[in-house]
Structures are given as structure tokens and as C-alpha cells.
Nucleic acid binder design. Structure first.
Length: 460
DNA sequence: CCCAGCACGC
DNA sequence: GACGTACGTGCTGGGT
């Protein structure tokens, strides 16, 4: 039997999307179908907690289905003119870079082929391979390794530029306009409800959860996501939600107090570690503290911290030791979580979403270490996902009473994007912020940063 | 059709 | 002594 919708996940590949369903006049309320319920149940049944007052399937995943269905059906408008003009510009720049590279190499080759590139780089131009990470097929030429080679040869910068431009062109500028639904004039992603191991959603065809933002050129692409006339976009994102969650799960007094005071948490961390006043924290100190706050939820080790900062491995180890000494309850929580995982073979979120860890007691140390990092990360990332899902359900339920024409459009893990009529922006903004911040009470406040504007790349 | 390598997001 | 930061999607190249 052909699946009704791909809300569950892109398993069999090429299932009907919600946008197809509208065109085919199939009921979008597949979620009320018994077969559909059963399929959701099969995915989530082992995650249901004994607590009958609340369970993941009944109170989060099932109500979420119609929210996602409606987000998919609504879609988002794309500024094709902007994307096409960027595309032309980038095509030119890419061709120019290729020509320059051919000249430096003394021959033509496929710049997009790492295999061919390696020959040119390391054999023909004799760029030093000292200190470079290896892949199965030889020395790596990824962005981190190119950074190490910077200055050794002028071609290095060209490779980085080529990679950035061709990525943006191929993945976004070429693909997005093709996916505009001729009927709605909008792009309709699919939200996959049961593909991730942590409880997050994923998004595909197109993936609207990895639209660029970090580089200036990337942000330009984000400006191509626009509204219908007379509307604005509102972007609301949870601020440091995972760190707030771990501080709450761990009941760490120092971190909790800092969040309660509304301090800059990275500055506070740096101040504590270096024993200085919070206002005397340098940029470098804050940067390192940020790296460790960020990394702690991923099970970061000293090697990893050293790599993302200028610290040596010894310094990084000391830095982490100091951190865990300072936030004692965080350390206890990390140890306890690992212990729990070893004893039970799984870990859980605050709302009892569960992930099994088959390798947690593996005799291969590497496998065990990887499973321990997963054990640390999943409850944090997953709890954030649970909270976000609950907020989305509440927003979907109450938004019509605030602004009947406003629509929930996108979710990007800790952010939602809403489209609302100009006249309603103020009250919708307040409603979204209040709902997200108050959907669940942690031991710390949950803060939401919220902005509006005419496009996704330019919210203020 | 599948895997490797790479790069985009959180 | 060497390495190892979680979770995803999707592109191109290159081999089967």
C-alpha cells in the first residue's frame, strides 16, 4: 500500500509530500487515520513512559502531526529574481576562479574533484602535507586543512572561494527555484517526524534547516525567503537553550544563578575560570569560554577544545578540568548520565524520549567513547526538541485567535519562522515570545530572541 | 546505484 | 602515541 504522506520520514524515498496531497485533493488530515496513528505508534511506542499523565506519543508527537502538515502546506515564498541574479554573478565568479586555477596548475582539471585536486596540490605544486589530516584516500583537502595550508600557495585561497561559491550555487541557487510549486508559488519542504535519534525534526526536498547564514554571501541567500505583500516574517529563536537545559537537568547552582541574573553566560564562565571580574573579561577569554560551554553538551575532549581555540592540548585539558571543578553539579550530571547509560543501555530526555545505545558497553574503547558522547548529548538536544515541539503545538492552537491570517512556516531546531500581516506584527511577536518562553518551566528562565522583517536574512 | 569527500545548518 | 564534538541533508565525482 502506498504511504499517504511522508510526514513519518523519507524511508521508501519518493513518497507523496503534503504539497502533492493538496494538488491531489487527498485529505491533509492523514493524522486522523488509524493506519497513520499505528505507524507513529510503532516508531514511538518504546519511548512511552509509565507516567500516564503525560506521554510523548499522545501529548507531543500526535498533536504535532497536524502542525507540521499545515506548515508544509503553507510553504514559504521565494524571491526568484534575487536568487537568479545571484546565480548569474556566482557563475561568473566560479568560471573566473577556475581559469586562474588552471593557469597556476599549468593544466585544466576538475576543481570539484578532490581526487584530481590532490594530485595538483601535493604532487604538481608540491604544497607541504605536514600536519594534515588523512582520509581513506590520502590527505584531506577540507576547509580545516586548507586553513592550515593558507599562505603556502596562492591557489589555496582560490580553492576555498571555489568551494564556498559552488556550494551556494549548486545546493541553493540552482535547486530552490526548481522546487517552487507552480500552484502555490511557494516552496514546500517536508518535515520528517521520526528520522533523528534525538527527537529533532529533519527537513528535506528542500532542506530548509540548512539555509546559509554564517558568511555574508550566505546570508544573501536567506534574503531570498520573503513574504506575500502586506505581511512580514517573524523569527523567534531560543537563546542558549541547550546550556539552559543542561544547567537545569544538572541543578548546577552557579550556572542557574547566572541565567537567573540574565548575565552573559560565556563572560560569567570566563570570569569564574580566570578569577576576574565579569567586566574585565577579554575577548579571547570569552571566546574560549564560549567554546567550552558549547562543547560540553557534545562531550568535547581536550583535543577538540584545543582545535577550536588557540589553547594547547595541555592547556585545554586544564581549562576543562577547571570548568568541571567550577560547575561541580555539571560534572556530577555528566558522570551520572554515563553511568545510567552503562547500566541501562539507553538514555532519556526530560520527557522520557528514549535513545538506545547498543555500543555503550562495547569492548572497543573508541565505540564506547562515542556512545558516551551520544549519551551526554541526546538528553540535552532531545529535551530542547521536546520543548520546541510543545511550543509549536501551543502556537498552532492559539495563533488564530491572535491573528487569523498569521501562519507558522518553518522550524529550524531552536527557531521558528512565522508570517503575519503587517498590522498584527506587534501582538503576534508578543504572543510567540510569551508562548515559547513559558511553555515549560525549567529551573532557569528560557529566553527567546525575536525579530521581524521583510525577509529571512534581514530580521531586526 | 552506492560510497567518499565535502559543506551547509543547529 | 594518536586521536575522537552531537544531530541532520544534499551536492559532485567516481566506481560498480
Amino acid at each position: 500500500m502506498q504511504p499517504i504522506t511522508d510526514l513519518i520520514g523519507p524511508k521508501g524515498k519518493k513518497q507523496l509530500s503534503m504539497a502533492d496531497i493538496e494538488i491531489n485533493k487527498v485529505s491533509p488530515y492523514a493524522c486522523e487515520d488509524a493506519d497513520y496513528t499505528w505507524r507513529l505508534y510503532k516508531v514511538f511506542y518504546d519511548r512511552i513512559h509509565e507516567d500516564k499523565m503525560f506521554n510523548l506519543l499522545k501529548d507531543i508527537e500526535m498533536p504535532l502531526v497536524k502542525v507540521l502538515a499545515n506548515m508544509e502546506l503553507t510553504g514559504i515564498k521565494i524571491d526568484t529574481k534575487l536568487l537568479n541574479s545571484m546565480n548569474k554573478d556566482l557563475t561568473k565568479r566560479i568560471k573566473l576562479i577556475e581559469k586562474k586555477m588552471y593557469k597556476m596548475a599549468g593544466e585544466e582539471f576538475n576543481v570539484a574533484s578532490p581526487k584530481q585536486l590532490k594530485v595538483i596540490l601535493f604532487e604538481k605544486l608540491n604544497v607541504s602535507t605536514a600536519g594534515l589530516k588523512k582520509t581513506k584516500t590520502g590527505f584531506s583537502t577540507d576547509a580545516a586543512q586548507l586553513e592550515k595550508m593558507k599562505g603556502l600557495h596562492p591557489i589555496i585561497d582560490l580553492i576555498s572561494d571555489f568551494r564556498e561559491y559552488s556550494k551556494l550555487k549548486n545546493t541553493y541557487l540552482d535547486a530552490l527555484p526548481e522546487l517552487i510549486n507552480p500552484k502555490t508559488g511557494r516552496v514546500h519542504t517536508s518535515y520528517n517526524q521520526a528520522v533523528t535519534a534525538t527527537g529533532r525534526l529533519s527537513s528535506s526536498e528542500p532542506n530548509l534547516q540548512n539555509i546559509p547564514i554564517r558568511t555574508d554571501l550566505g546570508r544573501e541567500i536567506r534574503k531570498g525567503f520573503i513574504t506575500r505583500p502586506g505581511y512580514k516574517l517573524i523569527g523567534a529563536d531560543y537563546s542558549q537553550v541547550e546550556l539552559r537545559i543542561i544547567s537545569s537537568l544538572a541543578s548546577d547552582p552557579k550556572m542557574i544563578v547566572s541565567f537567573q541574573k540574565g548575565e552573559d553566560i560565556h563572560k560569567r564562565t570566563a570570569a569564574e575560570i580566570h578569577g576576574v571580574d565579569i567586566k574585565d573579561v577579554t575577548f579571547e577569554q570569552r571566546y574560549q569560554a564560549k567554546a567550552i560551554n558549547f562543547g560540553i553538551i557534545y562531550g568535547l575532549g581536550s583535543t577538540g577544545l584545543a582545535k577550536s581555540t588557540d589553547l594547547t592540548r595541555t592547556e585545554a585539558k586544564k581549562f576543562i578540568d577547571n570548568y568541571l571543578e567550577l560547575y561541580k553539579e555539571i560534572k556530577k550530571y555528566l558522570d551520572h548520565t554515563k553511568e545510567f547509560a552503562h547500566e541501562n543501555g539507553y538514555v532519556e530526555t526530560l520527557f522520557k524520549r528514549r535513545r538506545y545505545l547498543p555500543d555503550i558497553n562495547s569492548r572497543i574503547p573508541f565505540m564506547q567513547a562515542a556512545a558516551e558522547r551520544t549519551a551526554i548529548n541526546m538528553p540535552v538536544q532531545g529535551t530542547a526538541a521536546d520543548i520546541m515541539k510543545m511550543a509549536m503545538i501551543k502556537i498552532w492552537e492559539d495563533l488564530p485567535s491572535i491573528s487569523p491570517k498569521a501562519r507558522l512556516l518553518l522550524q529550524v531546531h531552536d527557531e521558528v519562522v512565522v508570517e503575519a500581516p503587517d498590522a498584527d506584527i506587534k501582538k503576534v511577536t508578543k504572543f510567540i515570545k510569551d508562548t515559547m518562553e513559558n511553555i515549560y518551566k525549567l529551573k532557569v528562565p528560557i529566553k527567546v530572541d525575536i525579530e521581524s522583517g521583510n525577509n529571512w536574512g534581514d530580521l531586526k
